Simulated scan of single mutants.
Amino acid sequence: MTNLALFDLDHTLLPIDSDYEWGEFLVRVGAVDETAFRGRNDAFFAQYQAGVLDPVEYLEFALGTLARFPRAELDALYARYMREVIEPAIRPRALALVREHQEAGDLVAIITATNYHITAPIAARFGVEHHIGAMPEYDGAGQLTGRLLGTPTSGPGKITHMHAWLERLGRPFDSFERSHFYSDSHNDLPLLSIVTHPVATNPSAVLATHAREQGWPTLHLFND
Rank of each mutant, 00 (worst) to 15 (best):
T2S: 14
N3P: 02
L4I: 08
L4R: 13
L9T: 01
H11S: 15
Y20A: 00
E21Y: 06
E21R: 11
G23Q: 03
G23W: 04
F25C: 03
V29A: 03
V32L: 08
D33E: 15
D33I: 02
E34Y: 02
T35P: 00
R38P: 02
R40H: 03
A43E: 09
F44E: 00
F45D: 03
Y48E: 04
A50I: 07
G51C: 09
G51F: 13
V52Q: 13
V52G: 01
L59G: 05
E60I: 02
L63K: 01
L66K: 01
F69W: 08
F69E: 13
F69N: 09
A72E: 13
A72K: 12
E73L: 09
L74W: 07
Y78A: 01
V85H: 02
P88E: 11
A89V: 10
I90H: 05
R93M: 07
L95I: 14
L97S: 09
R99S: 13
Q102V: 06
Q102N: 07
L107P: 12
V108R: 08
A113I: 10
T114Y: 00
Y116W: 11
H117W: 14
H117D: 05
I118D: 00
I118K: 00
A120E: 12
A123H: 08
R125L: 10
G127S: 04
G127V: 00
H130R: 15
H131L: 06
I132N: 03
I132M: 12
E137M: 12
Y138H: 15
Q143V: 03
M162Y: 07
H163M: 04
A164W: 05
W165L: 14
L166C: 15
L166Q: 13
S175H: 10
Y182K: 08
Y182H: 11
S185T: 15
S185C: 09
S185P: 15
N187K: 09
D188V: 09
P190W: 10
L191Y: 05
L191M: 10
S193K: 06
T196M: 03
T196Q: 08
P198C: 04
V199N: 05
V199C: 08
N202P: 06
A208W: 02
A211C: 08
R212G: 00
G215F: 11
W216Y: 06
D224K: 15
